[in-house]
Each structure stands twice: as C-alpha cells, then as structure tokens.
Design a protein around this nucleic acid. Structure first.
Lengths: 189, 189
DNA sequence: CGCAAAATTAAGCATATGCTCAATTTTATG
DNA sequence: CATAAAATTGAGCATATGCTTAATTTTGCG
C-alpha cells in the first residue's frame, strides 16, 4: 500500500477536474492542492512543477485517445462500426472517459510552449488514425468516394463533438453508431 | 469616424484571440492591452472590468451560433442541407467564424460564476435549435426514426467537432454537407 | 520501543494579476 | 488659435501565483 502513490493519483484526478474547468493558465497549484485536501508544499513534493502535472495528464489523454481500430483482416465497415460502438459505450458508462475528450480538445487549442507536449500531440494526430481503414473501405468499394481525409474529419469530428455535448449535458442521448457510419458508406439509392 | 469605437472593437478582437489561446482565467487584461498596443488603463477605460469583456464576446458568439434555419415552408431536407452548407462556406472563407465556434465551446465548459452568462448560454441551447426541423422531417417520413434529440446531437455535434478541427488545422478538408445529411435521412437500401 | 525514511506543513520570496486614479496627450470644433 | 471633450498613459495598491525551504509529523520495521 504505497500511500504516496495514492496521493499522487488523487492529485492528478483533482488536477484534471480543475484543468477542465479553468484551463491550463487559470489552474493554480494552490487550488489543486486545496481541493485535494493537501498543502502546496506537498503538491510540489510529488510534482517538480506545474507543467509536469499537465504533461502527465496529456500523456494519459493521448494514450486513451488512441483507440486501436482492429483492422486485422476484418471488413472496414465492421471494424469501424465496432470502434464507434466502443467509444459510445465508454461515453455512457465511464464519465472520466468523456472528460478526457474535453481535456484533450482543450489541450489542442491551448498554446503551451512545451516541446514535449507538442511532440506528443503530433504523435497522436488522432483524426488521421482512421485514414488507413477508410482507404481500405474505399478500395473495396464499400465506402463512398471523396477525399479520405475529409471522411476522417467527418466521422472523427462527429465523435468529438458528440462527446463534448455528452460531457456538458450528461443525459444527452447518444446517436446510434450506425448513423455515423452512414456518413461514409456508399449510398445505394 | 469614431476612433474610440474602433479601439474598442480592436480590443475585443485581440481579447478573443487571447481567450482562445489561454482560456478565461489565464487571459490577463495586461496581455490583451499589450497585444493591442494599448495600456492597461485604456482597456479599463473602455470596459469596466474583465468579466465585461468576456460577456460582450459571449453575446456575439451566441448571436453567431443562432443560425436561422429557414424552415419557412421549405422541405426539411433542403433547409437543413442549406444551413449546413452555409456553415461550411463560412468556415472556409471566414476564419473568425471558426474561432467563435472554438470560443463558445470553451465557454460552455468553463465555470464562470456570472448569472448573465449562464442565462445567455441557456437561451442558446444551440443543439436543440434543430429539433423542430428534424421532427417535421420525421413526420413527413423523410428522416429516419429514433430519438429526435439524438439526431440533433449527431448532426450538430458533427458540425461542432468539424469546426474545431478546421480551426486547429486550417487546411483540413471539410466533408460534404450531403454526407452529414446521410446521418439523418431514412435509408432506402 | 527506537529511528530512519516518507509524508506533510507553514511561512515566505519574487513576480504577476485586476483594477484605480491623477495626470498628460490628442482630437475635434467654434 | 483656443478650449473642452476624448483618448491615453504610467505608477501603484491589494491580492494571487509558482515554487522553495526548513521544520514537523506520520509511517513502517528491526
């Protein structure tokens, strides 16, 4: 039972809440400490500085955003549908998952001059992740023609926007994953 | 040529940029003034306090978000399609339009204890705006069945998320408006 | 118990912040 | 040009911030 490690995790949880509420620059180390029932000194005992807390959370966020699309041989439609379904399920059941969406979105619009953070964000150009599956779907003639990047933007943007709404108003009803898929499959009418 | 009014507008423009970059709490009145080539004193000559600048921008944002869907007798599909097309055209041609999207999204996740701001945000539950047209489309059998609120969330969330991506990476290719419509029209296959 | 390692605190420093105010410069107009 | 209104400045107060440091308490363990 590493008591110190528990405190650290707790401080990170609180930090995420405050960061979502007030943004990076508006989040004071004092408030994080106070809300966690600790002193400023203690916070700086566990984290060498404020940036370091932020960086740690961004790392978690990037990892969480990388939803592995099991393109392993599966049909592009099925694997994408399953991925979207997974995300929606997590949004319904796990509030901190949605929070991370909001946090990461905020991170991407916040100018923080930290080399390491910028590198992390580039490594996780989350939107483009979907491009290979979409290309494969187009090759097979299952997905509609058009700029594959634009198709990525459509489906990923939708997920992002829907997640934001869900966090803001938790009882928001989520659309069906199939509806989103209809944006990218080839029309038959 | 009201010189003072021009300054005020300029200060508001700069304030929007800084607010998007750093969030409400991280935006200092000094920085707004400095970036606008003015002194702190001048800023407080035009705005009685920081909240007042924020409020003014939120007002503009709320107004800009209320895209009037001309449901006037038009078929729901056509009027919705036209609305989405308009939004995408503005996103391509007018960068400040996209910025407002990002700003308003940030506003909705930022806890600022200002009665007036909360009231404004409620008055502009932007997502639900679309519900009447969607209901009419369902009544006519043109739109798919399902929770109309969820259909709103799908199409509005998508627009929101796409706008965010466009602001973050300006050369992002936008999806076609018709693709978004495919989320809500009744499938024929 | 004894005692070192770990957890925690409180005070404090240098700097940044929101905002005020008296004073100065610029502008417009008779 | 004169003069009042408008625009603008810069110093300054009270408070909040990031972070340090020396000191104190709590914890685990032989």
């Amino acid at each position: 039972m590493d008591k110190g490690d528990e405190r650290k995790k707790q401080l990170l949880r609180v930090a995420l809440d405050v960061l979502i509420e007030k943004g990076y620059y508006g989040t004071s180390t004092r408030e994080i400490a106070r809300r966690a029932g600790a002193s400023s000194g203690l916070l700086f005992h566990y984290f060498s500085n404020k940036d370091c807390i932020y960086l740690e959370l961004v790392k978690v966020g990037v990892a969480e955003m990388k939803m592995d699309i099991e393109t392993a041989g599966n049909a592009p439609y099925d694997s994408l549908l399953q991925t979207v379904k997974n995300i929606f399920e997590q949004l319904e059941s796990n509030p901190s998952f949605g929070k991370m969406f909001v946090f990461m979105d905020q991170v991407q619009h916040t100018a923080v001059k930290e080399k390491e953070i910028e590198a992390l964000l580039e490594s996780a150009d989350i939107c483009r992740q979907w491009e290979p599956v979409i290309l494969e779907g187009q090759r097979r003639g299952e997905f509609r023609e058009g700029n594959p990047h634009a198709l990525c933007v459509a489906v990923f943007g939708a997920i992002q926007g829907i997640a934001q709404e869900k966090v803001r108003i938790p009882d928001t009803p989520l659309p069906k994953a199939e509806w989103l898929m209809d944006m990218i499959v080839k029309r038959t009418k």
